[in-house]
Every structure is written in structure tokens, then in C-alpha cells.
Amino acid sequence: MKTDIILAGVGGQGILSIAAVIGQAALLNNLYIKQSEVHGMSQRGGEVMSHLRISSNPVASDLIPFGAADLIIAVEPMESLRYLNYLSPEGWLVTNTKPFENISNYPDFDKIIDAIKELPRRVFIDADETAHEIGSVRASNMVMLGASVPFLKLSSESVEEGIRLIFGSKGEQVVDQNLQAVKAGMEAAKAVL
């Protein structure tokens, strides 16, 4: 088993929390993992990405080779397109459609959606809207985690257990909100698949 994942977003959008939960879920299944992160200058409202590799065999490279990612999970639509050179021809793109516009030359939204639609295997949902509906506006990253569950090759139970372990120290309410967000994301993905 091997799943190579690129996580993409803007600094502060919580892609590392998604990575932490998937990583924890992978460890629960006794899988090998390597997860590379971006720290420092690029976090200041800039684009951020993380390479997450989980496998039943030891992982050699900390970076995913170009054209080899099984999955791109993006919490922002323009960012979902930035790392397409990593995506394997059979890979999936799972992205949020809610733009994060902190630059003056942000492209036309419809054109972004058109570019996403050109991909043969993609899922796009408005994770911010979904998070709003369930009353946890800050959990849109967990909605996106939920939407990507069908492609992780990990059970939804292990992802849920991952959430309990990662957020347990922040209290039951945070855990429940995130579990709910993941569930809502899974359902939203199912509805469009």
C-alpha cells in the first residue's frame, strides 16, 4: 500500500493539521510515513504545501517525485492547481472552492473552476460553506480532510481515531466539532462522486 499526498493552501489555513491527522491514522495502521513541511518566511500569508507519504514499505525520499502523487488535497482553489506537476496521471485532486484572496491580482474565479474541471479525476466542494452549515466555521480544513477520505486508502475509523489523538488535548468539544466536520466532508464528497 502506498499513498503519496500533496497538501496545498495558504499559510494559516491548517494544512498541517490535516497532515497530522492522516499521519496519526497511518501510524495506527503500522504504516511508514514521511511528511515534509514548510516553515519560516513562506508561512507569512504565502503559498504553503506539504508532502505526505504513507506506505507499507519504508519511505526513501522526503519529497514526492513529480508525476507521482496519488492525491492533492487543497484548502484553496487556486492553490489546488499550483502543484499539478506532482499529480500522477491516475491521481485525484480534492479541493475547496472557497478562494482566499490576499493578493490584488487574484485570477478570475470561474477560470479557476474551469481549470479544475478539466482534470479527469477531481472533487470540489465549498468546504467553508459546509463548515458554516455545521456551525464550525474554523473547521473547513477538517471538511477537506473528510472529502479526501475515499482516496486515502485508510479506513474512516482510523481517521476518526487520528482526530481524537491529535485534538484530544484541546478538549471534547474541539474533537466533536472536527469529527462532525470530517463526516460532513465525507458526505459532501460522496454526493459529487
Binding site: S42, E79, L84, N102
Partner: peptide, 28 residues
Amino acid sequence: PNIVAKALGLAVPETVATPAIVVNRPPA
């Protein structure tokens, strides 16, 4: 891994280019 593959004389897969509409988001 790709730069190293090339140096090793291995084939590097063709990849999808980043669409031209994607603009940089410099740190601020």
C-alpha cells in the same frame, strides 16, 4: 527525486504543467 533521476539517466515522467492562471502569492 527528479533531478537525481535525470542524473542517473532514468526516464522522468511527463507531468501536467501548472495552469497559466495560477499567480504567485508572495509572503506578506
